[in-house]
Amino acid sequence: MNIKVLFFASCRDLIGTGEREMTLPDSATVTDLISELASEQARFIDMAPSLMVSINQAYVERDAKLQDGDEVAFIPPVSGG
């Protein structure tokens, strides 16, 4: 499946881009996506525990299953206001 992955703030700085298209095996979960990103950027695994994850703009847990066409975002602790 193909998904769009968004990165913000400190997470964008680490990954080096705000948006990526990625291809993952069918039935992959958020955890699988984190592993894939960590295999490319080892420090991502250190940051991951503090990140919230959304799928199609709704917060989800790590075991959430991804689907083709999903928009996934990695969300550092928010600091608006």
């Binding site: 913000f8 703030a9 975002a73 602790p77 928010v78 600091s79 608006g80």
Partner: peptide, 27 residues
């Protein structure tokens, strides 16, 4: 301040800068 995905970067007069992170437990 707890739920809306917005982030603040502080740029200080001494030249330093950093993304500020809120309280992770708030979410």
């Amino acid at each position: 301040k707890q739920t809306v995905p917005i982030w603040k970067k502080e740029v200080w007069t001494d030249g330093g800068e950093a993304w500020i992170e809120g309280d992770p437990s708030a979410l």
